Computed example of a mutant assay.
Amino acid sequence: MESYIAPANDTPLRRTDMAGRRCHWILEIHLVDRERGFGGFCEELLTLG
């Protein structure tokens, strides 16, 4: 759960992993139009400076 932004996760976004490396985040957006039968997906690497 600590890899997701969710109510159950209280881990800070700016943190290091178990090896001491700075963590980065990937923003994923999923758009789906079920009525028309198509969708799209976009992702972007977020670097927290």
Rank of each mutant, 00 (worst) to 15 (best):
L48P: 09
L31H: 13
L13M: 15
L31G: 14
G39N: 03
E35K: 11
E43H: 15
D33Q: 09
G20W: 06
P12N: 03
V32F: 11
E2Y: 09
G40T: 11
A6I: 12
G37K: 10
E44N: 08
I5T: 12
L13V: 13
R36A: 10
G37D: 06
I29Q: 11
A8R: 08
H24N: 07
F41R: 10
A8C: 01
N9A: 06
E35N: 08
M1G: 06
L27R: 14
R14K: 11
E35V: 10
M1S: 05
A19N: 13
E28G: 00
E44F: 08
H30P: 01
E44T: 10
E2S: 12
D33F: 07
H24Q: 09
H30S: 14
P12T: 01
G37P: 09
H24I: 01
N9K: 03
L46Q: 06
L31R: 12
D10Y: 06
Y4G: 02
L45Y: 05
R21E: 15
A19R: 10
E35C: 04
Y4D: 02
T47Y: 04
P12E: 01
M1I: 11
G20R: 00
S3I: 10
G20E: 09
V32M: 13
R21K: 13
E43I: 02
Y4A: 10
L46D: 03
L46V: 14
E28S: 04
